[in-house]
Simulated assay, not measured.
Amino acid sequence: MIVVVGKHRADLVEVAAGTELRFVDSFDDVPLESVEAVIGRIPADLLAKAPKLRWVHSPAAGVDADLSPEMLASDVVLTSSVGNGAIPLAEHSMLLILMLNRDVPRWMKAQAERRWERFTHGELAGLTLGIYGLGHSGLDLAVKAKTFHMRVIGVRRRAGEPSPYVEQVSFEQLLDESDFIVVTAPRTEDTAGRFGAVEFARMKESAYFVCISRGGIADDDALLDALRTGQIAGAGLDAHGIEPLPPESAFWDLPNVIVTPHNGATSPGTVRRGEEIVRENLRRFLSGQELVNVVDKAAGY
């Protein structure tokens, strides 16, 4: 039996071709002893009660919430929907970069006040974009930034195929040379708190920090201090250390910060690509083929 949780149902019956699919909103009435796979999330305490379970597919690109101690200790293969939101996340990164570079909030304020205010603003051509995390969204962002005539540098944890759009550099070089740093990496034990007081102090005073993947990769207190003291010029934040961002958070009020509500990949295309990943993995699972997007549990993604 394969259990499908929540909304992840499109075209799966056709792919399964006779295999029993159980569509549920919870596991209350599911005979766990018969479950071989779960598409969606399964409560951690139920893993040990499903002896035949071999595969769980997470509906999310980031699997922080799925990597419970029980999952880490199990032999269950975990796959993710990583890559489904790469295109809109890269687009959102460029949106935040352009808004910061051209001080779009200043225009919006003038519009609200019906003032015709012209000023000298920046341009991206010739500036250096540093990407922290050269996965799906990072590499797509590199392509987009190149079309704006930017120099693109980046760092990645895992070795990967070289890209003609990005020069791989050391983390220190990323900090020293970037006019914009965009975080596209997952939050793991290695990346949590990677940007702290020392790192922000090393960045250019004219540089901007953008995060579109996961909060907590930057230390919020250190980031706030860097923004308030002018150690960096500003920030564009779609992912936050605490979500939803509390109303009392200082990030809301800083004039050099643009806040969006972790909304960068909320698009129909993200849903469509996620469904395509589910269908392909279901087909592979049923035919005994190697699954795609298998999570390295030790690495956290």
Rank of each mutant, 00 (worst) to 15 (best):
L21C: 07
A226G: 00
A299I: 03
V294P: 03
L98D: 05
H121Y: 13
A197M: 13
L141W: 04
K146Y: 02
G135M: 02
P69I: 04
G135F: 09
A110Y: 06
G122E: 01
E123P: 02
W55F: 08
G135C: 04
M108D: 07
V210M: 03
I39R: 03
E248I: 06
S34D: 15
I212C: 02
S249A: 13
A235S: 02
G126H: 03
A201M: 05
H262K: 13
R214C: 07
F195H: 04
L78Y: 10
L78R: 10
S68R: 10
G130I: 00
A48H: 04
V292Q: 09
R214D: 03
M1L: 13
F251Q: 03
P244E: 13
L96K: 06
T191N: 07
G241M: 12
Q168M: 09
V15M: 03
L224H: 00
L134K: 07
T184W: 06
E33R: 09
A222G: 04
V152G: 05
R273H: 11
A239L: 05
F180V: 00
A298K: 15
V278L: 14
I232V: 13
P59I: 10
I258S: 05
A16V: 05
L175T: 00
E275K: 11
R22S: 13
L224F: 07
K144E: 02
G264E: 00
K52W: 02
W116M: 08
A142F: 06
T19G: 03
P268N: 01
A185C: 06
F23P: 13
F195N: 01
R228D: 14
R202P: 07
D220A: 14
L78H: 08
P164W: 09
V182N: 10
A250I: 03
A233G: 10
E113G: 02
G234A: 05
T191A: 10
V24I: 14
A142V: 10
E123K: 09
L141Y: 09
L139C: 05
E36L: 00
D66F: 12
E70L: 09
D225R: 15
N256K: 09
P88K: 05
Y165F: 15
M71D: 13
P162Q: 11
R114T: 00
A235I: 02
T147L: 04
R114D: 00
F148T: 01
D296P: 09
E117G: 01
G62W: 06
G241T: 15
V210E: 03
R279F: 01
V183Y: 04
P246G: 08
I87F: 08
D103E: 14
A60D: 11
K146R: 15
V24T: 08
G236D: 02
L53M: 07
D29T: 14
Q289S: 06
E113K: 11
E205T: 08
L89H: 04
I217D: 05
E70D: 13
G83W: 14
A192T: 14
V278S: 07
E199V: 01
L89C: 07
G6Q: 00
A185Q: 01
R187Y: 00
